[in-house]
């Protein structure tokens, strides 16, 4: 157990883990908010597609942050950009919550310094 914990801690330490997690959370919040009920969109408008696309982008960004930590700055800038896009096209960024999560995620990723580049 302890070994697994330590392996996980090392894995987290090697990448902007919190940034990725927040980006994924932002994407999920944005896409899940409009469908909290059981009905899915009957008439799919530009708004529905916009929130779906931004959410996919944010989740992909979060996963990319874990997968490619050395690209954290580029991905972080993208996540930050998507946060603003989400505000405009996705229900005010999932009623601000998703936008704020994505803003913090992008900022964390941009502030990440990988161990290789001393």
């Amino acid at each position: 157990m302890a070994a697994i914990d330590r392996r996980f801690a090392t894995w987290c330490g090697g990448r902007p883990f919190a940034a990725g997690l927040l980006a994924v959370a932002a994407g999920l919040e944005i896409v899940l908010l409009p469908i909290t009920g059981y009905e899915f969109l009957l008439v799919q408008g530009i708004g529905g597609i916009g929130s779906l696309l931004t959410a996919i982008g944010l989740v992909a960004g979060g996963v990319a942050l874990w997968r490619y930590p050395h690209r954290a700055r580029v991905i972080g800038a993208g996540v930050l950009l998507l946060a603003f896009v989400a505000y405009l096209v996705a229900n005010l960024g999932g009623f601000l919550v998703g936008m704020l999560l994505a803003l913090v995620a992008g900022s964390l990723a941009l502030a990440w310094q990988s161990g290789d580049a001393r």
């Binding site: 330490g13 902007p16 930590p69 954290a72 930050l80 803003l103 941009l110 502030a111 990440w112 290789d116």
Partner: peptide, 24 residues
Amino acid sequence: APHSAGRTRWSRFAVIVTVSLALA
């Protein structure tokens, strides 16, 4: 530290998050 370990530069984070919150 293993070659893969990194860290968050909190001062940089503070600057970026402040700027982006202002933009938001």
